[in-house]
Nucleic acid binder design. Structure first.
Lengths: 187, 187
DNA sequence: CTGTCCATGTAAGGCGTTACATGATTGT
DNA sequence: ACAATCATGTAACGCCTTACATGGACAG
């Protein structure tokens, strides 16, 4: 149900087409939620059926008509209700940890290759976060609505903090395996 | 594909029934991967069809026959191949951050309620991790295969480290909103 | 003239959840 | 007597991904 509510969120800022919504996802929440095109179109159709959205059709001769979606009163109510209700506990899904858990079947070099690969990927991710951070802090949106800006930066900060925890964990794991120590370092 | 490989992992330790597998998931990897019963049975059937597993049928008069699954040669090969190949970058899915991102539509009290709820849930989760940690470090498995034990503890350590990052983030967010400061604290 | 962007969608398949259904055994 | 555990599965629905399909506009 998160996709539905994220769509309501974006459309509550400004009515958009399916295509624009896809860009909105990619440009602003990709670091914690992705949505693909086919999913977005399908969900928009369903939400329109359910009365959460209304569809404004803009005819363009010789081409498929463009559809701009607007949030209805029910949509706004539904969004506010969802935003203000705590979510049920989400189960963590870390496929990478399955590889570690069954890593007894690998030798040290294979294990280290996995961990180093993950380290590199995490470092790259962190570099991207930093870039977004730098870029965002020099924007007008900050002055326009400091509170909303703060909240969007919080989601980025979450990515940075959890990425840092991942880096610490990886570096420790690599060190212990390299030294063949096989013990968890206590902090 | 992770479920499939986790099943191969468990069965490579010891042939099990679907029911036993469900318990194996619940007892040992629940903190980073869950699987439900119906999913497990469906996947076992598929994997048997695909030749990754063989099925040993144990007849029990008057009751449904019990099926014990064994990993085939192909299954072992597939498992090793998967375990040693870096996974493609997984997209993060944090529904909770969608609520924060669109939190401009909530007032401070509503936002704080969300954050405090998440704080409580995370603290409870951390307490469970600590319990497992305490319980595990006093086990025989440690001496039997210290390397495998180390790897299983690493997965737990990941949960603890990322939970701690979450707590730090939540506490900071709560503090900033309470003080109406709306700024990200730099560490 | 080739590729990218704009803009729409459909199809198929796998993953995950919840609910339903059966029936013996073991523990309180 | 009742509940929990053992042990099997089916049905239905929704979510998510990948691939396929169309066609104009615009830039290099």
């Amino acid at each position: 149900m998160s996709l539905k509510h994220a769509i309501l969120g974006f459309l509550s800022f400004k009515p958009l087409s399916g295509y624009d919504l896809k860009k909105a996802f990619d440009n602003s929440v990709r670091h914690f939620w992705t949505a693909n095109q086919s999913q977005i179109y399908r969900t928009l159709a369903k939400m329109t059926d359910d009365g959460l959205l209304s569809k404004e059709v803009i005819e363009r001769e010789e081409r498929l008509a463009m559809k701009i979606y607007h949030v209805s009163k029910e949509g706004r109510d539904e969004l506010h209700k969802w935003l203000s209700s705590p979510l049920p506990q989400q189960n963590m899904r870390e496929a990478f940890l399955i590889q570690i858990y069954f890593g007894g079947l690998l030798d040290d070099e294979e294990l280290l290759a996995l961990l180093r690969h993950e380290l590199k990927a995490t470092e790259e991710q962190m570099a991207i976060f930093d870039q977004i951070y730098q870029f965002s802090t020099g924007k007008t949106s900050q002055a326009e609505d400091p509170r909303a800006f703060f909240l969007s930066m919080l989601t980025l900060d979450y990515g940075i903090k959890s990425g840092q925890a991942m880096l610490d964990w990886l570096n420790n794991a690599i060190k212990e395996i390299e030294s063949k120590n096989y013990s968890i370092r206590q902090n």
